[in-house]
């Protein structure tokens, strides 16, 4: 099963529906307003830890631009469908971070910043608790799906690199893992 198949299966599994897509579209304006501050906080946090700070040094402005694009796509679904085009944009994010030697725990960790910051932004802008609950749920679903794709491509890229280095086929590596 390819990763895109995994993605569509997981979309079904977490119950990501057209209603979620509509909810996300309806909160795009909240993130147009609060997104830049959230992105700033994201990079300020990464700057506090030497392991992440060295990786972003001297390129924070350009990273903020890519980050803003990534965030915008959370609410448009790339061409509206949260489908293959959306998946492909997420799939490369994992591979890019493996290439720079970033440990996956940092990606997991900063997603919490997006989640909690996202909640705070929605709480400021939405009128009712019911609407907040419903729209925050949709945001959580898409962030979890994004993280899943990033993690899968992380794992995949690491195996690909191990396969290239050792000359071992993917099947052999899987056999080693299951015999481990």
């Amino acid at each position: 099963m390819s990763s895109y198949d995994n993605f569509t299966e997981m979309k079904k599994f977490v119950g990501f529906s057209s209603e979620d897509a509509e909810n996300l579209k309806s909160i795009a304006h909240v993130f147009e307003k609060h997104g830049p501050a959230l992105t700033d906080f994201f990079y300020e946090t990464l700057d506090l830890y030497p392991e992440t700070a060295t990786l972003i040094e001297g390129r924070v402005d350009s990273l903020k631009a890519t980050h803003a694009r990534w965030m915008g796509e959370l609410f448009t679904g790339v061409e509206g469908g949260y489908d293959e085009a959306y998946f492909n944009n997420r799939d490369i994010v994992g591979a890019v971070h493996v290439k720079i030697g970033l440990d996956p725990r940092w990606v997991e960790g900063v997603m919490t910043i997006i989640r909690t910051g996202g909640h705070a932004a929605l709480a400021q802008e939405l009128e009712s608790a019911a609407e907040l609950g419903e729209k925050f749920n949709s945001l959580c679903k898409i962030l979890d799906l994004d993280l899943m794709v990033i993690n899968l491509s992380y794992a995949d890229e690491r195996l690909t690199r191990l396969a290239t280095f050792t000359g071992m086929s993917r099947k052999l590596i899987e056999n080693c893992i299951s015999s481990g």
Binding site: F165, T166, G167, M168, S169, L172, N175, C176, S178, S179
Partner: peptide
């Protein structure tokens, strides 16, 4: 002997050797 394990180990050794 755990044949699955030995087989995977031998193949890994050979691949690494080839590389």
């Amino acid at each position: 002997l755990d044949e699955d394990r030995v087989a995977a180990m031998a193949a890994a050794l050979l691949s690494m050797g080839e590389r």
